[in-house]
Design a protein around this nucleic acid. Structure first.
Lengths: 185, 185
DNA sequence: CGCTTAATGCAAATCCTTTGCGTTAAGAAT
DNA sequence: ATTCTTAACGCAAAGGATTTGCATTAAGCG
């Protein structure tokens, strides 16, 4: 179930959302992560379970929401001065972030939105970041990379390893993937 | 939770397993897929819910078990006589199968297996199939493809689309990916 | 300041899940 | 074939989770 759009952004509503997010983070130790329940979160956040059910729908959506909020800070990839190094830096950071237990959980929660055919937000974040890099490149007068190709042949393999085959993508592995986009001279 | 190994394979145990599988399939219309409950399955299968909980642990595991049983028939990729067409046929079938609600659910269930560092079953199926194809190629005296490269640059993008960006990988898209392994002459 | 209404709290009702215990039937031994 | 052992099952009660109706609170607005 999707998270409700919040018409009212200020005051109590925002406070409760914050309290719930904090509660989830506090309860999200690696050991207990799979046993979190809505009533637990509610108790830790000082609200009633029904509030959470009404606003988020189910546990999965709460976790996904928190996961997304937590991914947002990556938003601004470092500006290294050149598009190739920008992309390499971003991908390395992305792989490291997503490989961690937290990142992995975030990835899982972010992709487990079940309901409608709405686009996964954690996917559009990645798209946004890549777009930022290409625009930056264009502003510099550089030839930008093909974002779709990077998604298919760099991001996708990294995510596949993390999510499916349960291997950790090493920096060396990431570099090898990137060498397909920017062949070493 | 993993499905219990069944020590007793015949008789009542097998009958119930079959009944539960049939019940899930019968209840798995695209519309109702997300609202199936264990008690529903139990009722349709003519058993008590506690039986299902004890044997499978939770709803997720039941669905995963059924999904796996349903995907097993893919096991033997068609033999088209040449390694390239073998791979192309397999990938196309794989993409189609995994794009379906059932396949998608399997991928999800496969990745949501949290417990130990055990390798995901649906991942090892894929590995097995690719190994089958490479061995077949070798037996024919052909040069086999690099399985890891196929995973990274063909399978991974397909899975990423299904799982993360929620697009359907079209046959044309799959062919384009495969053209990187076998460039069109 | 008062009005309107979305969001929350509370509590009851419903449904899902777990668990203890007696029963059934599969598989092995006689 | 019969008996024995025990895994798997059914039943029912207990324990949580989820849903829902209704009263209350507090945002946002004129």
């Amino acid at each position: 179930m999707a998270v409700k759009e919040r018409i009212r952004v200020g005051g109590r509503s925002a406070r409760i959302q914050q309290a719930v997010h904090d509660a989830v983070r506090k309860l999200s130790t690696p050991a207990t992560r799979n046993q979190i329940t809505v009533p637990q979160i509610a108790a830790a956040a000082g609200v009633t379970p029904s509030t959470i059910y009404r606003r988020w729908g189910d546990l999965q959506s709460v976790l996904a929401d928190v996961a997304l909020a937590r991914l947002r800070p990556i938003s601004d990839p470092d500006d290294t001065g050149a598009v190739e190094t920008d992309l390499r830096a971003f991908i390395e950071q992305y792989a490291e972030e997503m490989s961690s237990p937290v990142g992995r959980a975030l990835l899982r929660d972010g992709t487990s939105e079940v309901a409608a055919g709405q686009i996964s937000v954690c996917c559009s974040y990645t798209n946004d970041h890549l777009t930022t890099l290409t625009e930056r490149a264009r502003a510099r007068g550089e030839t930008p990379f093909d974002a779709e190709e990077v998604i298919d042949h760099v991001v996708a393999p990294i995510v596949y390893r993390i999510l499916v085959s349960q291997e950790t993508p090493t920096p060396a592995y990431c570099r090898r993937l990137l060498d397909r986009i920017y062949p070493p001279t």
